[in-house]
């Protein structure tokens, strides 16, 4: 089994990029691959706690569940600060991290990298 790194750079609403990233992560986990996701730019909102869309899938809940199944998730702290997303507001089991420490390591461990962005 291999290791997949997904980099997500779009937000959780207004398009389905995040849904695609989460579905891909789940399918890869189900096949026994190791999966890591890194949120960059708008992609940091993937792990914002308290997401409550009325009619759309709650990707926050999905990510929380996948994290319990082994999905590793980190997002860029600089991007979070720029958007007023504070440490402590992240979903349990996920991490506000950095490119230097987290994305670089994820990429180095990955067999494949998929960019989900516009």
């Amino acid at each position: 089994m291999g290791t997949l790194c997904i980099q997500l750079r779009t937000g959780t609403m207004m398009n389905m990029d995040t849904n695609v990233a989460v579905k891909l992560a789940k399918a890869a986990l189900d096949k026994g691959h190791k999966v890591m996701m890194f949120g960059y730019g708008e992609g940091v909102f993937l792990i914002k706690e308290g997401q409550d869309p009325k009619r759309f899938p709650n990707v926050g809940k999905e990510v929380e569940a996948l994290a319990k199944e082994g999905l590793e998730v980190a997002v860029c702290e600089t991007c979070c600060i720029a958007r007023g997303f504070k440490r402590g507001e992240e979903i349990s089991g996920t991490k506000i991290g950095s490119i230097t420490n987290d994305f670089s390591r994820m990429a180095s461990e990955a067999d494949r990298l998929v960019t989900i962005a516009r």
Binding site: A28, R112, V114, A117
Partner: peptide
């Protein structure tokens, strides 16, 4: 295709992905 097949394409059938 479905998502499980997409995973196979990414992880096994092709050497790299470019978005």
């Amino acid at each position: 295709i479905d998502y499980p097949r997409a995973v196979d394409l990414i992880m096994e059938d092709y050497d790299k992905t470019i978005t």
